[in-house]
Design a binder for these strands. Sequence first.
DNA 1: CTGAATCCTTTGGGATACTG
DNA 2: CAGTATCCCAAAGGATTCAG
Lengths: 134, 134
Amino acid sequence: MSTSNIGVSASLHDHRLPMPVPVGEYERCPVTDVLRQVSDKWTLLLLTLLGRRPYRFNELHRAVEGISPRMLSRTLRTLESDGLVDREVFPTLPPSVEYRLTPLGVSLLEPLSALADWAVDHHAEIAAVRQRPS
Amino acid sequence: MSTSNIGVSASLHDHRLPMPVPVGEYERCPVTDVLRQVSDKWTLLLLTLLGRRPYRFNELHRAVEGISPRMLSRTLRTLESDGLVDREVFPTLPPSVEYRLTPLGVSLLEPLSALADWAVDHHAEIAAVRQRPS
DNA sequence: CTGAATCCTTTGGGATACTG
DNA sequence: CAGTATCCCAAAGGATTCAG
């Protein structure tokens, strides 16, 4: 049910996108909004991992390799506040916290997967085009 | 043909994504790479417009409303250097330049459209979750 | 173990002015 | 018309340190 306030509806048939933006009257676009959330440096990877199974904080910290505790925490909090990830605290000693995808988060993986497939299929082509001399 | 050098292949069936990242040996991920290109402030809108028909520079400038000549130029150049957009110069007086999607650019609209549909269908839900007290 | 706080650098992006 | 050049600001993100 793609009823929304953003101008034109999407059409998979002719490969158009819903009109996303302030082409006159709208200040923000939910599509760009979602795109920007998902496209920061670590979100995609975290969603990928959490799509497989729940993880604890330090498990993620080890799995991602390169992420700082600060960014891991920040990214997870954002995902949580967007309803894509659930955070469950076990009051053990030492404390343990588990993160898992919400149903909403799981539902996002499907369209994201389509885009990921495209990227995998075409990134060599893009890389080639980028390198050609001017 | 999702043959690539990035670990695990995608699976629409179980909604997993290809392993995107330096979980050990890879420094960059084509998926995140593509996501970041597409998710800057103006790219999605420009791709949307160009998905409908070719545009001239100032046509885009008027259509987008809010974009500066600088960002319009920069964004178009990036899209061009990634092989998503073609730029054709007509040596008229005054000069005229037309931008249109390449076949690669067109092919990107389909998976992007899937993600856009998801965003349209769920942005209200996300907005609601965000606002709930703590 | 699971973070929060602080500081710093890099990048994205807006405003304005100018040119072939 | 189709841009480029400059300057400036705000946001993203890394490094390091500290805490419950």
